[in-house]
């Protein structure tokens, strides 16, 4: 890893939330990740960037345990997901929320039931409490109570993302994964969504790992940027420090970030 990648921040005393160690992923002969390491600390908002097909989404799917890497270890809150029993796994999974790229709402359920679903699965609350909590999460993502009865097919792209975010937040997770949170939204909505996530982060003290292609989202949200290229993390540092990293992809990327920031000024 480069020097910039070892650049530490003030959050370095915070406990480690997610730790990836010597991760390899191979599909037949195609190597997607080669000896990849990544550490995410509590309270950080980290952006994962990289070219199309560089394995960002694959990495995220490994982290939340949807797929298994060929070798290597992924620890969430200090536990390896695959080594826990069923109940413990479920408990650990309730500590993080995932926002899928296309929302992945249950199309047969309306907005209310979609958000209430994880709560009902807990079997801890009665319907009155669940109602209150769903209304709370709807208000949190700035949706109206009237929207609760709509079906996913009746929602716009931005609303789908909001509902999906509300569903990811309903179990009060400590860690949030966002796969392309602003892809497919127009600049206004994208900005509003970024603001929403910033507010949530302040209110709930979340740790966030997100994938993005959008420079505006990246510069507004991220404390740190992890760049995935050549099958591993080539840079892991605050956005300003990207300029010091000597790698063609990072150079191009930093150039477009600088252009964006210059436009803003």
């Amino acid at each position: 890893m480069s020097e910039a990648a070892n650049d530490t921040m003030s959050t370095s005393e915070q406990p480690i939330v997610c730790e990836i160690h010597h991760l390899w992923t191979e599909f037949d002969k195609l190597v997607v990740h080669r000896n990849l390491d990544l550490t995410l600390r509590k309270g950080e908002v980290m952006a994962l960037v990289g070219g199309s097909g560089s394995g960002k989404t694959t990495l995220l799917r490994h982290i939340i345990g949807l797929t298994q890497p060929s070798s290597g270890q992924i620890k969430l809150f200090g536990y390896v997901l695959g080594k826990l029993n069923r109940d413990q796994q479920r408990q650990l999974r309730n500590r993080f929320g995932m926002l899928f790229q296309h929302g992945a709402l249950f199309s047969a359920l309306n907005v209310f039931d979609n958000i209430a679903f994880p709560l009902r699965e807990l079997h801890q609350f009665d319907e009155d409490t669940i109602h209150l909590l769903v209304m709370h999460k709807l208000a949190l993502v700035e949706l109206e109570p009237e929207h609760a009865q709509l079906l996913p097919a009746q929602l716009s792209g931005g609303m789908i993302k909001r509902v999906a975010l509300a569903r990811a937040l309903v179990l009060e997770p400590e860690l949030l994964f966002l796969d392309e949170p602003t892809a497919g939204l127009d600049p206004d909505r994208s900005e509003a969504f970024v603001e929403l996530i910033q507010n949530l982060r302040r209110q709930l003290g979340l740790t966030v790992l997100f994938i993005t292609h959008d420079v505006a989202t990246l510069s507004a949200l991220a404390d740190r940027v992890a760049v995935l290229a050549d099958q591993h993390i080539v840079a892991n540092c605050p956005i300003e420090a990207l300029g010091k990293v000597d790698h063609p992809f990072v150079r191009n990327f930093f150039h477009s970030v600088k252009q964006h920031l210059a436009r803003l000024n």
Partner: peptide, 8 residues
């Protein structure tokens, strides 16, 4: 969640 339960 706890708040909602108590409030109820």
């Amino acid at each position: 969640a706890a708040g909602a339960m108590l409030l109820q």
